[in-house]
Nucleic acid binder design. Structure first.
Lengths: 238, 238
DNA sequence: ATTTGTGAATGGGTTCACAGCA
DNA sequence: TGCTGTGAACCCATTCACAAAT
């Protein structure tokens, strides 16, 4: 489940000021910004049992979730493409802080190979197999231009990487035994821009629509946004 | 629809080498890595009509989509929090390249106010209202520590910002008329780590499971990953 | 009395399949 | 014949509601 990290973060925040040793699904749902039933389903599906009438043991939940998420060890990441975004990611503390230290930087440009970025020296993409082998099980970040994203993904897979996070604005295909996730910053902005335009330019259309249907123009317009249900937390992460 | 940007990018790539003036839903689906029926549904829902037996007019689709996504104008963004991530985002070319120029940088730390980052001078978060007014309709990026994310979101909303992209690892709530999206890099990595752990440590459990059910252990394990259906493009963006 | 665990109902998005049109 | 547009079937996640457990 993709919500596990959110639960974990919520629990960690809670654990900083150790109030109670136990937490109800309702409280955790509130913290994570989701439905209480969903929390219970997720946790039961995960196998972690709570105690009826009491709740879940915070300590045990934390342990169980960390184990499930594989956070008992560090997962080094290798960043491919040390351009603008790649350097930014390399300097981003959020990764190492959460157990994903940047273990290597790789680029195809010979001019960049050998350059220092922070503590690391940029290596050649040709050495990817040995880099991956050196780091052990690795997550690969693609921070290259879109045109070479697929090629880089293939290289990563060939080098033994089984988890890829793609920042390049391109459709990338990988074998079924490789996990792939994407982060596209511009797409996020375009989606926001889409809803923003809906709210502004679409006013006439909305009035028209609300007159026809069960008419509550403004709230319909707002709930079309990505902010989730009104008055309900709409965001989370770890 | 959140897939519009992906279609748009696919069309733009296609339009660079102007082959045909028309495109079928099937071809576009292939480029975008989705189902053909989905493309047709999306496009019809959007109101852009194709021609049966022929396909969609590329030029017209491009125009219509850009308009729908509000990309006929630039949307300046204001970055709140000029720490590690904030600076990285400020230097990232991908934003301005796609019509989202970074119009202002804002921070709460008085020591940072006045500092230059690229072409911009960091402004005080207290001036947010005037900054937003100066830029016009604006998208806000939250790149602060998690603890102040909600506070910053409130400030942005109060200043008139109606679209927020949150990079802080925190649950943030906004009024229903404000759009909110999140990007959490660490969560993405944790999800990958989760599936990776599934594949490795879960081998014993998988063998057990495959013996019990309709048993194809390995492919079940792989499809549990986030890479979508086997042999099908699993990623996209703009 | 409180809170979990879960079958059943709900809802929304995806896919299928084919009628309709060029 | 080719491809769009779309009702219907399907699938899966979410939510409801309540029995079971402490």
């Amino acid at each position: 489940m993709a919500r596990l990290p959110v639960y974990l973060r919520s629990l960690l925040e809670l654990a900083e000021s150790p109030r109670a040793a136990t937490i109800s699904s309702e409280r955790l749902a509130e913290l994570a910004g989701v439905n209480a039933a969903k929390v219970r389903k997720d946790l039961s599906y995960l196998g972690s049992y709570g105690t009826r009438g009491v709740g879940y043991d915070v300590e045990y939940l934390l342990f169980e979730m960390s184990r499930e998420l594989g956070l008992t060890q560090d997962w080094p990441v290798v960043i491919v493409g040390v351009g603008n975004l790649g350097q930014a990611l390399a300097n981003y503390r959020g990764f190492s802080d959460r157990g994903f230290p940047v273990g290597a930087l790789v680029d195809a440009d010979p001019a960049k190979v050998g350059e220092r970025v922070g503590d690391l020296v940029i290596e050649s993409i040709d050495d990817l197999p040995s880099v991956v082998a050196r780091l052990g099980t690795t997550i690969g970040l693609i921070a290259t231009p879109a045109v070479v994203a697929q090629e880089v993904a293939d290289d990563l897979v060939a080098a033994g990487v089984r988890s890829i996070l793609n920042f390049a604005p391109a459709v990338v295909t990988v074998p079924p035994d490789v996990s792939l996730r994407k982060v596209d910053l511009a797409v996020e902005l375009q989606i926001l821009s889409f809803y923003q335009r809906r709210r502004t330019a679409g006013l006439a259309a909305m009035v028209e629509a609300s007159a026809a249907s069960d008419g509550n123009g403004s709230s319909a317009g707002s709930s079309a946004g990505s902010s989730g249900a009104p008055a309900v937390p709409a965001e989370a992460s770890e």
